[in-house]
Design a protein around this nucleic acid. Structure first.
Length: 739
DNA sequence: AGCACGCCGACT
DNA sequence: GTCGGCGTGCTC
């Protein structure tokens, strides 16, 4: 007999709907046995879905007659602790994203279906005692010898996980099989949770480092949440500060979460932590298989893993005794998810720190303007590491004016001469060009035709090696035309520089010098990057050419000259964040130079050598440049002095996005506080992408509350707008780029 | 998202 | 006459 005022569970279901669904407990189950944080199977419409109980024992929000009982509970005790539930709640609210989809991002796949939970085992491989690459059993098997050598590179005395060995490259599993058969390698099955070996020595901290550790942990000892900006120039030893803080957290029985940018989570980094701490460590990143992911997640959630290292999505891992969150390279754009559910892991880390009373440390050589702003206002505590560890001197930066200069494939005589000098002295040179391919444009000199992507309307990049034209926005590919398709008079010619073209022209300049190009095209194969980085360290390549990839975290101790081929892209761009990004990029690239005893030089080619941003950056450093950009932002009312939300719409139909956003603006305007601006709608800076026409409406407010209130009321209306289902539309809170 | 319902054009 | 196209509404 159903009572008139039943108590229900409120469930997040994996659908693009903004609210929770109410259910009666499964037949025969007392609602007291269904706490928030367990999973239930429920009927939704005529489908069966796994949902997450977010509230329990509350009155229903819908008519009693519409309630259906849940089918069954999947867990007996909460899988998600209350802090993580609160985080999911907050996140859905803040980003105005359906809570069921937030839940989907927060849970590893296995938790989204009906699998039972239990700790698994994992495979590891170790080298048999005394085996090396000279072993006679593999004398005629070069690949197997490489694999044995790879074990030696990692650590010949230790067992290694599949994901580490997979970095070796193609065929790693087969090779291991063969080596196991020859009894040169031993396969082991171990309980998953394993204590890292630790044992590495702890280097003495310098004054600035110990100062930072003492001040950050002083706050931690009091168990009071605080956010810290750890601003340290490249090579100043931020990592050592992190390690000491993690150690402090361990001593007080608290877990640590270390968030790193996507390309920052390398096997080397993990090994580094494992060799310092003899405790269980869980790592979470996109490359993990389902089993590894589930084990890492469970060990963190159960409190067994004392250190959790992961990329963006690891921010949602339940960590019950969390005492410390470190966000390394906090300015890095990969902390912001760029499609679908567009959350920012660094910002959530700050919220989570407060929720769980943890210390939050944001580390960077080039902090984001938001973080600097908060440090300036006193909201974040500020710690600086101003000097490089050891005797390394900071690099010299200089501008190379390339106006009216004869450039050779984009290279000035000045840069070429400097390169020659360094190479003759046995040093390495790194050239940075943020454009892969041979040339960004293919152009007919006779009639002016240029190759465009038929789906995005942007110029296609010419890839000489692949012999094709490729669109960098949608990966559309076509053959290279032998004649201009428009006038048929002559073949179209490459225009502008890409990394491939730079490589081939340098080959003619420096005939006998090894040149290595590192970009997404050359490192597509698994493990290729690791292999190249090793070869670079061995000094095989005096000249390195790279894109953005090379700017992040890799240390090349023999690089004494860095050349930035074209700094002007970042000066011309219309995006309001372009200056911030350029300043960060130049300083990060500069950080690759002269890390050991020799001072490095950075040569920046530009047509605007008197640009105030460049002048300030070179003369007074990153902080001064950042303050200058902050001033611009204040004058123009842009973040961090205002708060943005970007409403995007796209459709195969050209008129639809604009039509929808015009209606959207009309229905939002009456709800908006007078100090909220609706800017647009406008055609997006990139009007078409992968065949879809795009428009956007920028919403700017001078108070978070105004922005939030508008969206809270407004988005519900947009759902019901006619045509809302003919466009794909989404909100992006705190957008990092306005494309 | 998925699924049902309902309303209009073009077919055996 | 119906088959099926998509635009709209609903899911506790």
């Amino acid at each position: 007999m159903p009572s008139d005022n039943p108590r229900v569970i409120r469930v997040a279901v994996p659908l693009p709907l903004r609210g929770l669904f109410d259910y009666l407990p499964p037949v025969g189950v007392d609602i007291k046995n269904i706490p928030a944080g367990i999973r239930v199977i429920v009927n939704v419409g005529r489908r069966r879905l796994v949902g997450l109980v977010c509230e329990s024992g509350v009155p229903p929000h819908v008519e009693v007659r519409r309630l259906r009982p849940a089918l069954r509970c999947l867990d007996t005790r909460p899988l998600i602790d209350r802090h993580t539930l609160a985080l999911i709640h907050f996140t859905a609210n803040y980003y105005h994203h359906p809570i069921g989809e937030v839940m989907v991002s927060a849970l590893p796949r296995f938790l989204r279906d009906q699998t039972e939970i239990g700790i698994a085992h994992r495979e590891q491989w170790r080298l048999a005692v005394g085996v090396d690459a000279l072993h006679q059993a593999i004398a005629r098997a070069p690949r197997q010898r490489d694999m044995v050598a790879y074990f030696h590179d990692l650590d010949p005395h230790r067992a290694h996980d599949a994901h580490v060995l997979a970095e070796f490259g193609r065929g790693w599993r087969t090779l291991l099989g063969e080596l196991v058969k020859k009894e040169l390698v031993i396969r082991e099955k171990r309980p998953w949770l394993e204590v890292a070996p630790g044992g590495d020595t702890w280097p003495e901290l310098n004054a600035a480092q110990s100062h930072a550790v003492a001040h950050i942990w002083q706050a931690g000892a009091a168990d009071r949440y605080a956010v810290h900006l750890l601003e340290g120039v490249t090579g100043s030893g931020k990592t050592e500060v992190y390690l000491h803080l993690v150690d402090k957290a361990l001593q007080t029985g608290r877990q640590s979460l270390v968030l790193v940018p996507e390309i920052g989570l390398t096997p080397q980094l993990i090994t580094h932590f494992r060799n310092r701490f003899a405790v269980p460590i869980a790592t979470m990143h996109s490359g993990l298989g389902d089993v590894d992911r589930r084990n890492a997640w469970l060990s963190a959630a159960s409190g067994q893993a004392l250190i959790v290292i992961g990329t963006r999505s690891a921010i949602f891992t339940p960590i019950p005794r969390l005492g410390l969150i470190i966000v390394d390279e906090e300015h890095d754009a990969s902390f912001k998810q760029q499609e679908g559910f567009r959350y920012h892991a660094r910002d959530l880390a700050v919220w989570r720190g407060r929720e769980q009373n943890a210390q939050v440390v944001l580390g960077s050589a080039t902090p984001s303007l938001e973080t600097i702003h908060h440090a300036n206002s006193g909201r974040y505590k500020h710690h600086r590491l101003n000097y490089r560890v050891g005797k390394a001197k900071p690099p010299r930066l200089r501008l190379v004016d390339v106006r009216h200069k004869q450039l050779d494939s984009g290279l000035s005589g000045t840069l070429l001469a400097a390169m020659g000098d360094e190479i003759r002295q046995g040093q390495q040179v790194l050239l940075f060009l943020n454009r892969r391919g041979y040339s960004p444009v293919l152009f007919c000199h006779n009639c002016g035709w240029l190759a465009r992507c038929p789906r995005c309307d942007v110029p296609m990049t010419y890839h000489a090696q692949a012999g094709c034209l490729r669109c960098h926005h949608c990966d559309f590919e076509t053959a290279l035309p032998s004649q201009c398709p428009e006038c048929s008079q002559e073949p179209p010619k490459p225009l502008g520089q890409g990394t491939e073209r730079l490589e081939s022209s340098l080959q003619s300049h420096f005939a006998d010098v090894g040149i290595l190009r590192i970009d997404r095209d050359t490192t597509r194969r698994r493990g290729a990057l690791i292999k190249y980085l090793g070869a670079v360290r061995d000094g095989q390549y005096p000249i390195l050419i790279g894109t953005q990839m090379l700017t992040k975290g890799h240390h090349f101790s023999n690089v004494t000259l860095v050349g930035v081929i074209d700094a002007d892209q970042g000066l011309y761009s219309a995006d309001y964040r372009a200056h911030e990004r350029l300043a960060q990029l130049l300083i990060q690239v500069a950080g690759r130079a002269g890390r050991e005893s020799r001072q490095g030089t950075v040569m920046i080619q530009t047509c605007q050598p008197e640009h105030p941003l460049l002048i300030t950056l070179l003369r007074d450093g990153y902080r001064a440049a950042a303050e200058m950009i902050l001033k611009e932002r204040r004058d123009t009312g842009m973040p961090p002095y205002s708060y943005l939300a970007l409403l995007r719409a796209e459709s195969l139909n050209e008129a639809m996005p604009m039509r929808f956003l015009t209606l959207a603006a009309e229905s939002l305007r009456p709800l908006a506080h007078p100090q909220v601006d609706l800017l647009g709608p406008v055609i997006a800076p990139m009007p078409r992408r992968a065949g879809r026409y795009r428009s956007q409406l920028l919403i700017r407010a001078f108070s978070r509350e105004h922005l939030h209130n508008l969206l809270k009321q407004g988005l519900a209306r947009l759902d019901k707008l006619p045509g809302a289902r003919q466009v794909r539309w989404s909100v992006d809170i705190d957008p990092v780029d306005l494309y």
